[in-house]
C-alpha cells in the first residue's frame, strides 16, 4: 500500500471540506473494498477520510412507510435488526448474504453503494425497493443512482448519509453466489408494492439494472409460471472466468422465479 494522509473528521461538513482540499481523496467507510484495492495498488488515494466518527450516519429507523438506514450502518446490524426483519425481511436477508461474517462486521451500506461493484448485493435491494439515496447535498432516486461500472450519480466529494427504503407488500432476494468470493454471480431482488412490481438484477451487467421484461410479465400475473419461457438477452451482460453472458442471462430467469416463488 502506498502512503497517504489520514483524516478522521467528526461531521459530514468537515469530511466534505477535507475532500475538497485534498489531491485525490477517498472516503473510508468499512474499507472492505477500498483497503484491499489499496493493498493491491489498484487504488492510490493521496488522502483517506475516515467516516467512522460520523456517529449520526449510523442507525436504523423504521417509520410507518419506510426503513431509513444510516450510510455507516454495518451489514451485520441490518441483517440482525429485528425492526428490518419485520418491515422488509428481504432487505435483512440481502445484508446477511453479503461477503462473510467478518466482512459484514465492517462493511457498510453507504460504502457498498458508493463503490457500486457490479456484483454487490445492496444495489439490487436499493433499486428493487425503489429506495432514495440521501447525500450531503441532495436526494437521489435509485433509478438514477447507478450509472455504470463502479460509477454512480455521486459528484466528487459528495457523501452518502442515509438510504430510505419504502416498505413493500412483499419482497425477496435470491442470489447465485460465487463460492469463493461470495459475490453475486447473479442476484435478483423482486419487490411487490401498491405501485407495481420491480425486479432488480445485480452481478449480471456493468451495474444493477431493472429487468423490465420480467416486471411487465409479473404485473399481469405474479407467479413463477409467468416468467417461464421469457428469454433474457445476453447482450451487454458480463462475461468472465466465472460465467459467460448467456449463462448469466439464464440465471436471471432462474433467480427471478425463485424470488417470486418465495413470495407469490
Amino acid at each position: 500500500m502506498y502512503s497517504f494522509a489520514y483524516h478522521r473528521p467528526v461531521s459530514a461538513a468537515e469530511a466534505e471540506a477535507l475532500a475538497a482540499k485534498a489531491g485525490e481523496a477517498r472516503f473510508l467507510a468499512g474499507g472492505m473494498t477500498l483497503l484491499p484495492a489499496m493493498k493491491l495498488r489498484l487504488a492510490q488515494p493521496t488522502d483517506l477520510i475516515d467516516l467512522a466518527r460520523l456517529g449520526d450516519l449510523r442507525g436504523i429507523k423504521v417509520s410507518g412507510s419506510e426503513v431509513r438506514i444510516g450510510a455507516m450502518t454495518l451489514h451485520a446490524a441490518v441483517a440482525a435488526s429485528a425492526e428490518v426483519k419485520r418491515a422488509i425481511p428481504a432487505l435483512a436477508h440481502c445484508a446477511g448474504v453479503i461477503g462473510d461474517p467478518q466482512v459484514r462486521n465492517r462493511g457498510t451500506l453507504g460504502g457498498s453503494l458508493a463503490n457500486n461493484d457490479p456484483a454487490a448485493d445492496y444495489p439490487a435491494a436499493v433499486l428493487g425497493l425503489n429506495a432514495t439515496v440521501h447525500t450531503s447535498r441532495r436526494t437521489i432516486p435509485a433509478d438514477s443512482f447507478f450509472r455504470g461500472l463502479f460509477e454512480t450519480a455521486l459528484e466528487p466529494g459528495e457523501l452518502i448519509t442515509a438510504v430510505s427504503f419504502p416498505i413493500p407488500e412483499r419482497a425477496a432476494y435470491e442470489k447465485f453466489r460465487h463460492p469463493a468470493s461470495r459475490y453475486a454471480v447473479v442476484g435478483v431482488f423482486v419487490a411487490r408494492t401498491g405501485g407495481g412490481v420491480r425486479v432488480a438484477v445485480t452481478g449480471a451487467g456493468p451495474c444493477a439494472f431493472r429487468a423490465t421484461q420480467l416486471e411487465q410479465a409479473l404485473a399481469k400475473n405474479f407467479s413463477p409460471d409467468a416468467l417461464k419461457g421469457i428469454k433474457i438477452s445476453a447482450d451487454g451482460l458480463n462475461s468472465d472466468i466465472h460465467a459467460a453472458a448467456d449463462y448469466r442471462a439464464h440465471l436471471i430467469g432462474v433467480m427471478a422465479r425463485r424470488a417470486v416463488a418465495a413470495i407469490a
Partner: peptide, 28 residues
Amino acid sequence: DTSQCGACVVHLDGLSVKSCSMLAVQAE
C-alpha cells in the same frame, strides 16, 4: 493478504474482523 482466508481474525470491540483489512489507526 487478500481478505479471504480469515487467518488474521481478531475481535474489535467484541466483533470478529479481519485485521489484514483494516488500518491500525482505525482501531484507535
